[in-house]
Simulated assay, not measured.
Amino acid sequence: MLTIGSVVLGVANVPRAAAFWMEALGYVPRDEIEPDWVVLIPAEGTGVQLSLGLSATPPQDHPRIHLDLYAGDAADQAAEVERLVSLGAQRVDWDLYPDDADFIVLADPDGNRFCIIDTGHG
């Protein structure tokens, strides 16, 4: 049986992306950060790996695949959004929000979209 070993993001600058995602998620490099590749793992040892690979392809405005990061409630979501923005994420003027959205769309320093989900939302 197969399992997912790692989620891979294409980035324009691996060291910059690694610095953002390590701070954002509390991850550490599994091995040395190379100019074109790094695998990040949870500092606590269990969880999904995040691999960052050098890519010349620009990020998509409406990506088919993205990360959902879970927050406990609306207050936690707001605090996490502010924390991530302070680390270099950018708010995205998302044109596809439903009326009662439980998510906020951000972009990492390379422009990759990801969502912060309020898991306590109705």
Results as ranks from 00 to 15, higher is better:
Pro35His: 03
Pro59Lys: 10
Pro59Met: 07
Leu52Pro: 10
Pro58Lys: 03
Glu44Pro: 05
Gly47Gln: 05
Val38Trp: 04
His66Leu: 04
Glu32Gly: 09
Ser55Arg: 07
Ala43Tyr: 00
Ser55Asp: 04
Val39Trp: 01
Thr46Asn: 08
Pro59Ala: 11
Trp37Phe: 15
Leu54Ala: 14
Ile65Arg: 12
Leu52His: 05
Glu34Lys: 11
Pro63His: 07
Glu32Thr: 15
Arg64Lys: 15
Ile41Met: 14
Gly45Asn: 06
Glu34Met: 13
Glu32Leu: 02
Gly53Pro: 11
Asp31Phe: 03
His62Lys: 09
Glu44Cys: 10
His62Phe: 11
Tyr70Gln: 01
Asp68Gln: 09
Asp31His: 04
Trp37Gln: 01
Val39Arg: 15
His62Trp: 13
Thr46Leu: 08
Gly45Pro: 07
Ala43Ile: 01
His66Gly: 06
Tyr70Trp: 01
Arg30Ala: 15
Gln49Cys: 14
Ile33Gln: 03
Pro59Leu: 12
Arg64Gly: 15
Glu44Ile: 08
Thr46Glu: 03
Asp31Arg: 07
Gly47Ser: 03
Ile65Trp: 08
His66Trp: 02
Arg64Pro: 01
Asp31Tyr: 09
Asp61Cys: 03
Leu69Met: 15
Val48Lys: 10
Leu67Gly: 05
Ile65Met: 14
Gln49Tyr: 09
Leu52Ile: 07
Val48Arg: 09
Glu32Val: 14
Leu50Pro: 13
Leu54Asn: 05
Ser55Lys: 03
Ala43Asp: 01
Thr57Lys: 12
Gly53Cys: 10
Leu69Cys: 15
Leu50Phe: 14
Leu69Ala: 11
His62Ser: 08
Glu44Asn: 07
Leu67His: 01
Gly53Trp: 02
Ser55Cys: 04
Leu54Ile: 11
Trp37Cys: 10
Val38Asp: 00
Ile33Asp: 01
Asp31Pro: 03
Asp68Ser: 12
Gln49Ser: 13
Pro35Asn: 04
Asp61Met: 08
Arg30Pro: 02
Val39Ser: 11
Val48Met: 14
Gly45Ser: 04
Asp31Ala: 10
Asp31Trp: 06
Glu44Lys: 14
Gln60Lys: 08
Leu54Phe: 14
Leu52Phe: 08
Ala43Phe: 01
Leu40Pro: 08
Trp37Leu: 15
Gly47Arg: 13
Ala56Asn: 08
Leu67Cys: 06
Asp36Leu: 10
